[in-house]
């Protein structure tokens, strides 16, 4: 689907990330298309979260270029921007593998914090807000409305006034997505959103992500281990192994790519021996490069 206007929203070119002697990501290039769901998969330690951290500015890549293009044509070079500026100006929002909510604040407050920059301007950088300007009060009301809309979408409206730390795990995952969406992002990066969810909850997550993609001007980049989520909703999959891209394409293409099967999805029993040899060869090849 969405093959008609395939313009890349995110272009990752030759990105390498080294931590001391360890190369977590090496010479990675891929593109994520506008209004598509791109999944980043790979075995544990393949460097997926490192790629995320480079895109969202939490790490500065050692080499390479990461460009984000909005629909209006403005371009941001993410590898040169601070993390909060990426969120503020380039409009990239993210969630975390280990949920990072403001647990001592209520669900609604979490979503209000997400609209900080917009409200900051509305409150005249606090000065007008302290003096009680009506402009700010209106802006705050709008912000609450937006938060309410998202709470309804993630079915948390009844828990709006409860502390975020009190929510069950699955609800916290959904709240984190809602909080990211309240920043009105152009690119939403989800780091294992289905981790710890039961099959029913993952199915619900699939629906939510599809709805987000179709109802908002947003592209989604996703790290996930849960294949039912990845294969169910992705338009495009990038497979990493040992920090390198080993496959890139549609779910159908990736599923049948022998490299992926070898490195990631496992092989038939009779092929196991052959695969072990192949894996060894790959490991040696990687070792030679490093």
């Amino acid at each position: 689907m969405a093959t008609a206007n395939k313009t890349p929203v995110l272009t990752v070119e030759h990105v390498t990330m080294r931590f001391g002697g360890l190369t977590a990501v090496s010479d990675l290039s891929f593109e994520a298309n506008r209004n598509e769901i791109t999944a980043l998969i790979g075995p544990n330690g393949a460097g997926k979260t490192t790629v995320f951290n480079c895109i969202t500015g939490f790490y500065k890549p050692t080499e390479g270029k990461i460009a984000l293009r909005h629909a209006d044509g403005s371009e941001f070079l993410l590898e040169r921007m601070d993390d909060f500026r990426i969120a503020q100006h380039a409009k990239v929002a993210r969630t975390f593998q280990n949920i990072r909510l403001f647990s001592g604040m209520t669900v609604l407050e979490n979503l209000m914090v997400a609209q900080h920059n917009k409200l900051m301007v509305a409150s005249g950088y606090t000065v007008a807000g302290v003096l009680g300007s009506s402009h700010y009060r209106r802006a705050e009301k709008d912000a609450i409305e937006l938060a309410k809309a998202w709470l309804e979408k993630v079915r948390l409206i009844d828990r709006a006034d409860d502390p975020a730390g009190d929510l069950p795990y699955g609800d916290q995952r959904r709240l984190e997505i809602a909080r990211a969406m309240c920043t009105e992002p152009r690119l939403l990066c989800l780091d294992e959103p289905a981790a710890g969810l039961n099959p029913r909850e993952s199915e619900e997550l699939n629906k939510l992500l599809r709805a987000i993609r179709s109802e908002n001007d947003v592209s989604i980049l996703l790290i996930e281990h849960d294949m039912s989520v990845v294969m169910g909703i992705s338009d495009h999959i990038v497979v990493l192994d040992y920090g390198q891209k080993i496959s890139d394409g549609t779910p159908h293409h990736v599923k049948s790519d022998p490299a992926v099967i070898r490195a990631y999805l496992g092989v038939d029993e009779e092929e196991e021996e052959k695969d072990a040899l192949a894996a060894k060869a790959v490991a040696e090849a990687v070792g030679d490069q490093a």
Binding site: S103, V113, N117, G129
Partner: peptide, 25 residues
């Protein structure tokens, strides 16, 4: 009750999450 105050409290709760939401910590 202003964004700045909420940002202070959010900072106390989780600084990294603040940065991911575009707050200049």
């Amino acid at each position: 009750r202003l964004p700045i105050g909420r940002a202070w409290e959010a900072l106390r709760e989780d600084e990294i999450a603040c940065r991911s939401l575009g707050i200049n910590t």
